[in-house]
């Protein structure tokens, strides 16, 4: 039987190595100091170096072991969910909570094919309204409800 390396371990090891190296590289300008007077660069450098070593160990161990491969990434749900969140973050300041919740719901529902548009519309409207009531009216979170420049409903503000 052919040897199948443990790609999960190799991938994780590579990721840890990359993060550790990034910490060492980004922190290269910070003063390291000495044990009695540690600079801001001391601790991150130590942790970064340890992480590189651990990552290498994990990857090497993974390369020597047989294991099932990584299950395929589900790009569509990932992009829909993250895209919805990013869209929400970008739109909430100019457009307000109602519009950005609508956008988040519509984009988030693209995660899987075959969800009906009518249901999406009703769900988005319900969620926008409910979150407005819950967070702005009930919980009094100071979040803009309507787009910039629109006078908001007097009894809410």
């Amino acid at each position: 039987m052919a040897h199948i390396p443990n790609w999960r371990d190799i991938g994780a090891g590579a990721l840890f190595c990359a993060c550790g190296s990034a910490a060492l590289w980004l922190g290269r300008h910070h003063a390291v100091g000495n044990l009695a007077a540690m600079g801001p660069g001391f601790f991150p450098s130590v942790i970064g170096a340890l992480l590189v070593a651990l990552g290498a160990a994990i990857a090497v161990r993974g390369a020597r072991r047989d294991a099932p491969g990584i299950t395929p990434f589900a790009w569509r749900p990932l992009l829909a969910v993250l895209g919805g969140l990013v869209l929400f973050a970008v739109t909430i300041r100019p457009a307000g909570l109602l519009a950005s919740t609508l956008a988040l719901t519509v984009v988030g529902r693209l995660a899987r094919p075959g969800y009906g548009w009518r249901e999406t519309a009703v769900l988005a409207a319900t969620l926008a309204l409910a979150s407005g009531l819950l967070f702005r009216v009930a919980l009094r979170v100071p979040v803009p409800l309507l787009p910039n420049g629109w006078t908001s409903v007097p009894w809410i503000s």
Partner: peptide
């Protein structure tokens, strides 16, 4: 899940 997503975002 869209409900949970909206709750997380807000």
């Amino acid at each position: 899940y869209p409900t949970v997503l909206a709750l997380c975002a807000i």
